[in-house]
Amino acid sequence: MDPLSTLWETFFDADAMREALPEMLTVGLPNTLLLAASAALLGTVFGLLLAVAGISRSRWLRWPARVYTDVFRGLPAAATILLIGVGLAPLGMRVWGPDPYPLGVLALSLIAAAYIGEIFRSGIQSVEAAQLEGARALGFSWADAMRLVIIPQGIRRVLPAWVNQLIALIKDSSLVYFLGLVASQRELFRIGQDYAATTGNESALLLAGLFYLALTVPLTHVVNWIDRRLRNGRPATAPADDEDDDLALAGAPEGDRR
């Protein structure tokens, strides 16, 4: 066999892919989606709390949020997953038994929260102070004004960055394989890697890669779509005159303005 076709066979062996496909579909894909989705949910909720703590007027909320964010953004994801997955295993043992899966979700969530918290904080802080003043002038408390007026606007502005974070999360979910999952818990990467290791052929791993792309590439288009909508959704130009004006302008001062 010539070297080129050997190379081709190493990555694109149809039989090897066909062999791995059923397990990828029934085990790997559901696990990857479950890991990413639950970590996205927890990470978003915790990230929102971090963002609110980060802009709080109390330093006792601001500082812990700052330190947390610096630590979890600063550590390599692999290190965090190992530290939490292994370090908290004795604790997990007592609560739900020897299963490392929940700790994997926890580690992914804590990492995502640090990034999502920063994304939300920057969005919330980009909302003009006049919006807060407008809400307070109607009688809303600071907390209600934040909840109803400021935070919804801030988050809307950073939705593209948030979706980018979900993409990162799907990819990072491959790292939980460190924790030693049982066969039924393996996600896409682990299944591909296992087939590759036993056959010496990388095609199954490449198939796993195609699955990741099938998840992440559409999401990048979602980012672009949201981005476009945010920019074009609101017409930049307003009607020039009050053509709908059916006001009786009784007593409107006129001609006296110079």
């Binding site: 919006q131 003043e133 407008g134 809400a135 307070r136 002038a137 109607l138 009688g139 007026v149 606007q153």
Partner: peptide, 17 residues
């Protein structure tokens, strides 16, 4: 907050949501 419900304020820049 209760006072501000009794006293309405309209801003130069509208401050609509």
């Amino acid at each position: 907050d209760a006072l501000r419900q009794r006293v309405g304020l309209v801003f130069q820049q509208f401050n609509l949501f």
